[in-house]
Design a protein around this nucleic acid. Structure first.
Lengths: 205, 205
DNA sequence: TAGATTGTTAATCGATTAACAATC
DNA sequence: TAGATTGTTAATCGATTAACAATC
């Protein structure tokens, strides 16, 4: 549905939504101009207008964009109201932190459960979510009917886990293991390597 | 030093390094071709050659790139041997996970300490690193002489913390709070919003 | 030599910015 | 009306890919 928009514009949509939601609920912010948004987010103002045009929410010359409508348009654009489930694989340090993180709800996403291979963790609850055996990964994914997964396992197991997830019906993966996960065209993958990002910053000093 | 190379090339450098390091220490991998790298990482092979050219490591026609030399060139390119310290602000779930994460060492970076405002955590040790009071943030940064920081505090405090870090001499920030941190031209910032990334994936389903 | 691979130059593609007309 | 802001079209910029020469 959102496939006809430039990738970089799509990436900025949650940023706009987040910013607009953070504004005080005040008459002064009933309308927001592209210039104000651009300044707050460090972007060009023409870019902001072009991005917002994709949401279908029209701004008014001399006034700006109606904030409430714009938020609603962004929410619809990001399909936030069709509540989606996600599973997490790997309940280690990072995985446990993600299980306890409340921020997914802002985008209509709920982490339904985690899978781990540590018998001390399996059967327990972390961040309010059940931790299941990684043996039941396929069964669990299909039972919950989820299409989204987060991988937070060691690098060596990540690609294998990804392949199992895909066979179990997962169609999009957020990968924190420090390897590039490769998958077919029909599966979306975002790789986030925390240490690599810090290394990039360090090399720019 | 690395400022004359395209931003996207720089971002791929740790990916190449990681991949090359992961190969078995085997005669079959003394040389690696750009085609093999491209296939493993899902990139175009011309792109790989162009990126690798920035490292100054020359490949040999018909043979490929000498793996050990290429790793050394990438390490030098990323300045991995000038050991760098980093501080973390916010020892909550995500912060604690980062304190216990060993992956920074792969890039010559060491997390030296964390700052938090929870009196129950201050004075303690998490992931082997001391947790100091956020009141001593400026003093701590200057004492350790660090230029790198990770922000893992709630959204509302992130911008303020960033400004304090910058005043204390920090020149690059990896921000996990779900707000865009803005700073002067001379300070590098990478914002990673985990929930937003999952939302982008979800909207593409 | 023939074949495989690198490295470079030109072409393409996509994203951002600039210019400006439209609108309230 | 004048001024501020949106929205669109054209120009620019940067990144990727294609074509091909160079090399072992």
């Amino acid at each position: 549905m959102n496939r006809d928009i430039p990738g970089f514009s799509l990436q900025r949509m949650p940023v706009y939504l987040n910013y607009l939601r953070s504004l005080p609920d005040d008459d002064a912010y009933t309308y927001v101009s592209s210039g104000a948004i651009a300044q707050a987010l460090g972007l060009g103002e023409v870019l902001v207008r072009k991005d917002l045009a994709y949401t279908g929410c029209a701004g008014r010359p001399k006034v700006g964009y109606p904030r409430a409508e714009l938020i609603a348009a962004l929410e619809q654009f990001l399909c936030i109201h069709d509540h989606k489930g996600a599973v997490l694989v790997g309940a280690g340090g990072l995985g446990s932190a993600l299980l306890g993180y409340g921020g997914f709800a802002n985008y209509g996403i709920e982490l339904v459960c985690a899978f781990d291979n540590d018998p001390h963790k399996v059967g327990g609850i972390v961040g309010g979510k059940p931790v299941l055996s990684v043996d039941s990964l396929e069964a669990g994914c299909m039972e919950y009917g989820v299409q989204l997964a987060i991988i937070a396992v060691p690098a060596a197991s990540a690609q294998g886990i990804a392949e199992r997830l895909i066979r179990a019906g997962i169609r999009a993966i957020l990968n924190f293991a420090p390897v590039q996960i490769t998958a077919g065209e029909d599966v979306k993958v975002i790789n986030i390597d925390v240490a690599a990002n810090l290394a990039i910053l360090a090399s720019m000093l």
